[in-house]
Structure formats: structure tokens, C-alpha cells
Design a protein around this nucleic acid. Sequence first.
DNA 1: GATTCCCTATCTACTGATAGGTAGATATAT
DNA 2: ATATATCTACCTATCAGTAGATAGGGAATC
Lengths: 189, 189
Amino acid sequence: MQMPKTEKPLSDTASKILDVAERMARQGGYYAFSFRDIASEIGIKSASIHYHFPTKEALGEALVTRYTDRFLGALGRLDEATPLESLEQYVAAYRRALIEQDLMCLCGMFGAEIARLPDPVARRTREFFERNLVWLETVFRAAGAPNPEARAGETIARLEGAMILARSMNDMDLFQRVTADLPAQVLRD
Amino acid sequence: MQMPKTEKPLSDTASKILDVAERMARQGGYYAFSFRDIASEIGIKSASIHYHFPTKEALGEALVTRYTDRFLGALGRLDEATPLESLEQYVAAYRRALIEQDLMCLCGMFGAEIARLPDPVARRTREFFERNLVWLETVFRAAGAPNPEARAGETIARLEGAMILARSMNDMDLFQRVTADLPAQVLRD
DNA sequence: GATTCCCTATCTACTGATAGGTAGATATAT
DNA sequence: ATATATCTACCTATCAGTAGATAGGGAATC
């Protein structure tokens, strides 16, 4: 029997490194996390991080990969919900990240910085958006909405932008007000 | 006769410093510009920058202040255009920044990083959004649109998000497709 | 007309902190 | 014995920032 290609599961330490790095990156971007800061927070030495992630570039790549998989994995299955429900779920995923964790979307952050990101990290960031666009286009196609590609883009743009705006204004409820009618509005013809 | 409070005009060198710093910041954020890089690009020594801007914080603040004034100054007068025209002008301002300069909006960038920005820079960034919200609310009120505050937020969110998305996908035309119907759409009841 | 003084703007030379990264020793567990 | 995971100790490069010298250009004084 052929084994499917499986990802090597992350060790405890590697997970902790990613957890801390992700939080720092989602607060201040790619240049806002350092090996030293991560290490001191989890109680190891910075050299030890290089054992798990040889370079910062590799760490950044792992960061985006894990984030993308988790983000898309947290979305419900498309064949078990109406398009409206799917969209509401999608908006809720962003809202949770913003309200519960008080953090930016990792890829919204990296997307803003993309011109100064190492190539592999930039590529993974693009993959995040690509896969999100595909997911949303499927929703809009199922709803029979015109221009599903443009609507998918509108949806992501408005959500990422609303996170930035709400955080900038230090008014998290602004996210709610800006995205409350998004699912219904973007679905109507 | 009482003199109105006037801003001291920037020297040639100070302007050049801001020009270079702005471009770097709009590519990679607050941590992506350094005194050394700026200095070497304009052919002076990094110590000379401190003469014009004592600290990086001060330089960041000057950056956002100039950007905000220019951005709002480039918008037409509200009493000389219909709400639809004003909105089209507003969208065009973002499009120009993205397409012609191939740069992010400075405050979209700083807004994403706001949790790790020095206080004065964060405050100026908030001011940018505050003043933009006011401008847009005026437009929506003049158009008799309901919820002008939410619509102003939606507009900014979608434009900032569309910039990030288009740059991430390396597809500048995506900005066009995502924002093409924005003025009409956000104005209809 | 020459001298003195001050202001502007830049320079050289430096500091202490921090960045990512490496070599090689060490400890533990299988 | 070997593989895993961590350590100490170090490297070079870069960071923002500082002290103090220097050069030039007025303007006032002699």
C-alpha cells in the first residue's frame, strides 16, 4: 500500500517557535520577530532555533504554510453549507483573529510588505491569497453570482482592509460595522 | 497683524530624505528604512540625517504628516463635484499610487504594523484614517446615503485591501477589477 | 576692507545594542 | 553507537544615535 506524502509533524519546540514568531509577525510584520526575542520568550537560546529552522527565511516560510493550512482548514466544507452561510463563516474567521487574538491576518501583513520579503516567503503569501480566492470563487459560483472572481477579490480586500482600519483606529467594533452586511451585499446581483 | 502659524518649509536635503524614506517605507514598512540606506542613496552620511530629523521616530512622524497632507490635498474640493465624481477621484488617488509608483499606501502599511510603531507615528497614522473617514462621510452624506460612517469605512477598507491583494498576486489589474464598481456600488441604497 | 562671530550643514569616528548565522561541545535517550 | 536537541562562544554586519571637528556663508564690528 502506497503511503500518501505526509508532513513530518512538528516537534513541541518547533511549534512553540512558530507560535511566538506568528504572534510577533502578526503584530509588526516580517522584521518584527527575531531569533533572540523568540528564544528568550520560550526559554531557549537563539542558536537552538536554527536547529529547527535553519534560516529566518525558512522560519517565515513555515509560518505562512502553517497559517494558510490552518486558516483554510478552519473553514467549513462547501458542500455542507449554503453560499450565504459559507460567506458568514469566512467573515467570522477574520473577526475571530482580530477580536479574540487582537492580531492582524499574517498574510495581510506579509502582503503589505511583499516587496521586501524573501522570495520563498512571498511565494507562500501569494499562495494564501490564491487558495482563498479559489475558495471564495467557488462560493460565488455556487450562488450563481456574476463576476465570481471580482467578488472574491472584493471580499478579501474588504476584510483585510477592515482589519487594518479597525486596528489603526483602535476601534475593533469598526470591523464589525464595516463588514456586517458584507455577505448579503456581495451576494446580491 | 498676527502671523498665522506657518510650517517651516523643508530644506532640499530634508525633502530628499523624506522622499527616499517614504519609498522604502511604502515597500516594506517602518523597519524597512534605515538611516544608512537613505543616506547612501542620496549621497550623504547617515549622521547628517540626524541633523534634519533627530530620531527615527521623528522621521517617521514627518513622513506620515507630509503623506497625509499631500494625499488629502490632492483630492478635489467637495463643493465642486458630485458625490459620484468625488468617489471616483478618491479611488483614482489610490490607483495612481499603486499603478504609477508601484507602492503601497504609506498608512495602509503603517496601519498593518501599528501595534509595533512608536506612539507618535501610530498617532499620525490614525489621524490619516480619521481625516479620510471624515472626507468620505461628507461625500456619503451629500449623496443622502444611509450609514455614511460605515460606507466610509467600507471604502477605505476595500481600497487598502485591494492594494495589498493586487501587490501580493503581482497582478495590478486585479486592483482595477476589485474596485471598478466601488463608487456606484457603495452609493446605491 | 578686514576681522570676528555665529549659524547651517556636513563630516569623521565612535558607541552599545542587536541582527542572523556558525562551529563545536555536551547531554540525553534509544 | 547513533540521532536528537540543546548549549556556549563566537562571527560579521547592521542598527540608531552621539560627540566633536570642519567648512562655508553672511552679518556685525573694528
